[in-house]
């Protein structure tokens, strides 16, 4: 029972350097159980690196990560049973069809084949991948890759979903459907952490946000606290630092 009071994900002092470049510098985050958490930040802020370390796919230089109180690096088997992950840009078993990927991974996890078959059918149908029965994953479009990745993350009914850019390259209809799935998952007691740089989406979906910039947390907490009186986008630009941008340098384009 004690696990229910533990946060879904607690990240303590994570740090990672690639050569001389410090990608993540002493990051602390707490994702409360049952929350829908948005991790936002500009490109290259360290979101992907942080999430990879939090789920056990990248060994941190320092710090630790706990999932419902289970240390990811000390007790990986138990921690991995609790989470479903969608990493950004990793390969899949490319030469299997979508159905084969789900069947293979489900049975590899030790789920009964009948359960795997039933869930696979349902996931393929809901995510509209069932029309591509003969297509290997390597031939999938970017959006289809996201969807099969999401199906893999959901397959074993985890308690925490860690999704890196789940809406990128996904068409609006699929995006709405994924949002519905995730909402339902949180309403039924699950926890979700998504990374994104689409502020409007995070604002609509999440109840908690963490803002990362240059490998550090610049703000974190309930959505209302972080955004204050304005929009999340305004708060984000304030926090990360406004950049002058635009057309003044591109005179040749408008002439």
């Amino acid at each position: 029972m004690s696990k229910n009071r533990e946060p879904a994900l607690r990240v303590i002092g994570l740090r990672k350097a690639f050569g001389d470049h410090v990608a993540v510098d002493d990051i602390h985050l707490t994702v409360p159980a049952g929350s829908f958490y948005g991790l936002v930040g500009p490109n290259g802020a360290g979101k992907t690196t942080t999430l990879a370390m939090a789920v056990g796919l990248l060994r941190p230089d320092a710090g630790s990560a706990e999932i419902f109180g289970v240390d990811v690096w000390r007790d990986p088997v138990q921690a991995k049973a609790l989470i479903g992950v969608l990493p950004d840009g990793n390969a899949m078993p490319e030469r299997l069809t979508g159905r084969e990927v789900l069947t293979y991974l489900g049975q590899l996890r030790g789920l009964p084949p009948a359960v795997v078959a039933e869930r696979t059918d349902e996931l393929l149908r809901v995510l509209e991948l069932d029309s591509a029965e003969r297509t290997l994953v390597i031939e999938y479009s970017t959006g289809m890759r996201k969807k099969i990745g999401l199906a893999v993350a959901l397959l074993h009914a985890p308690r925490l979903l860690v999704l890196d850019e789940p809406f990128e390259a996904v068409d609006p209809v699929s995006s709405a459907m994924i949002r519905t799935i995730l909402r339902g998952f949180v309403d039924s007691g699950g926890s979700v952490i998504v990374s994104s740089h689409v502020m409007a989406l995070v604002e609509r979906l999440c109840d908690h946000v963490g803002v990362i910039s240059d490998g550090r947390v610049v703000a974190a907490g309930p959505l209302a606290d972080v955004r204050g009186s304005g929009t999340l986008e305004d708060a984000f630009v304030d926090l990360v630092g406004a950049r002058t941008g635009g057309m003044e340098g591109l005179a040749w384009l408008t002439s």
Binding site: G56, N90, P93, L108, R109, V152
Partner: peptide
């Protein structure tokens, strides 16, 4: 197989089976 290895790593105890 490239980075598809992540799936084996994220599946508890799958290394031996793989």
């Amino acid at each position: 197989d490239g980075t598809a290895l992540w799936l084996t790593l994220m599946t508890p105890g799958a290394e031996r089976a793989d």
